[in-house]
Structures are given as C-alpha cells and as structure tokens.
Computed example of a mutant assay.
Amino acid sequence: MEEKSVNKTNSNGYTFMFAIIMVVVVAAVLAFTATSLQPTQKENVRQEKMQNILATVGIETDRPGAEKLYNQYIVEELALDENGQVDESVDAFKVDLAKELKKDVNEQVFPLYIAEVEGKRFYIVPLRGNGLWNAIFGYISIKDDINTIKGATFDHLGETPGLGAEITKQWFKEAFEEEKIFDENGNLVGVSVVKGNIDASDKDDNKVDAISGATITGDGVSDMISERLKRYLPYFEKQKDIKVAIK
C-alpha cells in the first residue's frame, strides 16, 4: 500500500496538477497585489508630477509635501487648443501628453500651468519628445517676459546610463536657467543642445553644452523644446498683459 502511494505522488499527472495549482495561486496573489497597489501608484505619479512642475520654478519638495505647495504656488491650470483658446471642459492636469502627441495638432490639448512665486509669475509648459531609445519628457518654465527660462526638468524612459540619461542630472538642467527662447530676430527657436565650446555665461545664444556621447538624446531635447513652446505662442500673443518677445 505504501509503495502505491509513493508512486501516485511521483506520477506525471500529480506533478502537472500541482504545477497548475501553484500557477493559479501565484497569479491570483500577483493580481491582488497589483490591484491593491494601483491607487498608491497613481497617487505617487500624481505627486511626482506636482514635484516636477514646482521644481521648474525653484520650489523643491518631497513627494508627500508636493500637493500643499502645488496648491500654494500654482494659481492656474489651463487647457489650450491650437489657437490659444482655453477649453474649460478639460482638466489640464489630467491631460496625457503621450496620447495627445499621437493626434493631429488641431486635435491636441496643450496644458499650461501658471505659477506665482514671491510676486513673480511663471508659465510652465510640459514637454515630450523622442530620445535615442524611447520617449523623453519634462517641464520648462518661462518668466513673464515670455523669453527667459526660469528652470527646466527632464526625464526619460530608456536612455543609456552615463550618456543620454544624463539629462536628468542637476548640472544639465541648470544649464537652461536664464537662457532665452527667442533669437535676436524675434524668432522662437527654443534652446539647442550643441557640441563645441559653448559659453555658459552667454544666455542670449539659445544654446547649452551637449552631453558627451549623447547627440541623439540632445537633439531630442532641442526639438521637443522648440516644438512644444511654439504651440503656446497663440495663447501668449492674445494676452494683453504679456509682452511677447517676438517682433
């Protein structure tokens, strides 16, 4: 009797059944865990977005403190169409730029965040473009002359560590501070990431120094800044209290 019991537990059928049960149990546990964590993950993403927006105007905070400071310093969230008109039916904060960029320009929504810090007003534009391997994105804030960059923050989905991934480093982000987005002829050109002997003190050249070995990522940063900022010109040109740098 004992030998038959051993043979039964060592049979292929028993092993197969045990494997199926374990797969089902593990899958159920993973599904439950993922579902349980989803609200927390969404909240973390929401708070991190607030952190990044605030960082462009010099407000640093941890994730738990982001919402309080966001509500303190961000005075308006606008959803714009291609003509610079505000669409009040759209929640600007919930706009997914990755999805918007897949649409035709005339169907896109352009979120704009307006901050007031120590009596000064800043306009914060979300950015998204293409790096070497995947999407790159971030935010850039413009002073109320609509020409001078207050600050910028960048991130990526899959750039190479030590190369393209350097766009997240503080030294790279700081290079954009005080740079102008219009050239001397009044054309909106953004800021280009350029190889060579760039004078970091020259804030009127529309250029910052490139990351060594990351030309394609740098070009992606340049392209997304100029492309995204140009979409907001119709709005800025309509505002009577804003002197746009364009001639």
Rank of each mutant, 00 (worst) to 15 (best):
residue 3 E to T: 13
residue 5 S to L: 14
residue 6 V to H: 09
residue 7 N to H: 00
residue 8 K to N: 07
residue 9 T to K: 15
residue 15 T to E: 09
residue 25 V to E: 06
residue 26 V to L: 06
residue 27 A to P: 11
residue 32 F to P: 05
residue 33 T to Q: 06
residue 35 T to A: 11
residue 40 T to D: 15
residue 45 V to S: 11
residue 46 R to E: 14
residue 46 R to T: 13
residue 48 E to F: 10
residue 48 E to S: 14
residue 50 M to V: 09
residue 53 I to Q: 04
residue 54 L to S: 13
residue 54 L to C: 14
residue 56 T to Q: 10
residue 58 G to K: 04
residue 59 I to W: 12
residue 61 T to Q: 14
residue 66 A to Q: 12
residue 67 E to P: 08
residue 67 E to D: 14
residue 68 K to G: 01
residue 68 K to F: 01
residue 72 Q to N: 13
residue 75 V to I: 08
residue 75 V to H: 02
residue 78 L to K: 01
residue 82 E to G: 06
residue 85 Q to E: 11
residue 86 V to L: 01
residue 86 V to R: 01
residue 87 D to N: 12
residue 92 A to H: 11
residue 93 F to N: 11
residue 95 V to P: 00
residue 95 V to T: 07
residue 95 V to I: 10
residue 96 D to F: 00
residue 97 L to M: 13
residue 98 A to Y: 08
residue 99 K to P: 02
residue 100 E to K: 14
residue 101 L to E: 11
residue 106 N to M: 10
residue 111 P to A: 13
residue 113 Y to L: 01
residue 113 Y to Q: 00
residue 115 A to T: 03
residue 120 K to S: 02
residue 120 K to N: 02
residue 129 G to V: 10
residue 131 G to K: 12
residue 133 W to K: 08
residue 136 I to M: 06
residue 136 I to G: 06
residue 137 F to V: 07
residue 146 I to N: 12
residue 148 T to E: 12
residue 149 I to F: 00
residue 151 G to E: 06
residue 154 F to K: 00
residue 155 D to E: 10
residue 155 D to N: 08
residue 157 L to H: 14
residue 158 G to W: 07
residue 164 G to C: 02
residue 165 A to L: 09
residue 165 A to Q: 05
residue 168 T to P: 01
residue 171 W to Q: 11
residue 174 E to D: 15
residue 175 A to G: 04
residue 178 E to W: 03
residue 180 K to Y: 04
residue 181 I to M: 00
residue 185 N to V: 02
residue 186 G to I: 02
residue 187 N to R: 07
residue 191 V to S: 09
residue 195 K to P: 12
residue 196 G to P: 15
residue 197 N to L: 03
residue 197 N to G: 06
residue 198 I to P: 15
residue 199 D to G: 07
residue 204 D to T: 12
residue 210 A to E: 07
residue 212 S to K: 10
residue 213 G to D: 10
residue 214 A to F: 07
residue 216 I to F: 05
residue 216 I to R: 08
residue 216 I to W: 05
residue 216 I to S: 09
residue 217 T to R: 08
residue 218 G to S: 12
residue 218 G to D: 08
residue 218 G to K: 06
residue 219 D to A: 08
residue 220 G to C: 10
residue 221 V to E: 08
residue 226 S to D: 14
residue 226 S to E: 14
residue 227 E to N: 11
residue 227 E to C: 05
residue 232 Y to Q: 09
residue 235 Y to I: 02
residue 236 F to L: 02
residue 241 D to V: 04
residue 244 V to A: 01
residue 244 V to Q: 04
residue 246 I to H: 02
